[in-house]
């Protein structure tokens, strides 16, 4: 049953087929990395596989970097410059007196003008996009980004299982969370994910976490009688397919 769930989550979502459509290599790498990540989670003594999963994620990271339109962290557009100049004028003069001499603090420049602060706020913006669950389960609905073509990734029915899987992964392997979620999120914060296939570097983690969450449902259903278990299974699958078709329709518009 485990593998059935794994295949259901990994292949019955619009994101993987969009990636398949755009880049066969990334598709293949994603399948392999999701598979190894899942094996790593399942295996109790798997130092060797752990290294494989890290190597595959490194490869994925390279592809993410190559495919993404990486925006400069410090360059400003004309509109950014207009806003910056307007805001520089909004600050009041900030000073304090030291031995009868005024010491001016250029807070306006520190906040608005320095390249370090500009890049810091850009990184925060990228981070905000990478960690938004609505991006992965609702094509960023209800707060779609201006000028970005949003697309459906995972069926929203998976979200509760993803959340459950997320906690179960932390409980079992914090290292896996760091390598497959936290590090990729930091990487995406630096480069953004402006590409036609989105932040696919996080695909393996989302797929594995959702699988782990769904397995818990399967485990809970295991206590039921055979008929009840089958009914739950059929109900879930029907609902999953309905939602899958629904988001495919939205994706096609």
């Amino acid at each position: 049953m485990r593998w059935k769930i794994f295949f259901l989550v990994t292949f019955l979502n619009p994101w993987i087929w969009r990636i398949f459509d755009r880049s066969l290599v990334v598709f293949a790498l994603l399948v392999v990395s999701t598979f190894t990540l899942y094996l790593t989670f399942r295996c109790n003594d798997c130092r060797y596989k752990k290294y494989i999963s890290i190597v595959v994620l490194l490869f994925l990271g390279t592809f993410q970097y190559r495919i993404t339109y990486v925006k400069s962290l410090v360059n400003l557009s004309n509109d950014d410059i207009r806003v910056r100049d307007m805001r520089l004028k909004e600050y009041p003069p900030v000073k304090f007196t030291l031995v009868n001499k005024p010491v001016w603090i250029p807070l306006a420049h520190w906040f608005e003008g320095r390249p370090e602060s500009i890049s810091f706020f850009r990184i925060l913006y990228n981070l905000s996009e990478a960690v938004d669950p609505n991006l992965y389960f609702f094509a960023n609905h209800p707060r779609e980004r201006v000028g970005t073509q949003e697309f459906e990734k995972f069926p929203y029915l998976l979200f509760p299982f993803f959340a459950l899987g997320y906690f179960l992964i932390i409980e079992k392997s914090k290292q896996l969370l760091v390598t497959s979620f936290i590090i990729p999120v930091f990487f995406l914060s630096l480069i953004g994910h402006d590409s036609k296939i989105g932040p696919f570097l996080l695909f393996p983690f989302f797929a594995v976490a959702s699988t782990v969450g769904l397995e818990r449902l399967d485990k809970s259903a295991g206590k039921l009688s055979k008929i009840k278990k089958r009914t739950v299974c059929i109900l879930f699958l029907s609902l999953y397919l309905l939602v899958f078709v629904q988001i495919l329709i939205y994706a096609s518009h």
Binding site: V131, D132, L135, F138, F159, V243
Partner: peptide, 15 residues
């Protein structure tokens, strides 16, 4: 279902 859940989830979104 989609509308409600997307709105609901947005209240937990770190973004």
């Amino acid at each position: 279902a989609r509308e409600f859940l997307s709105q609901y989830l947005s209240y937990f979104s770190p973004r």
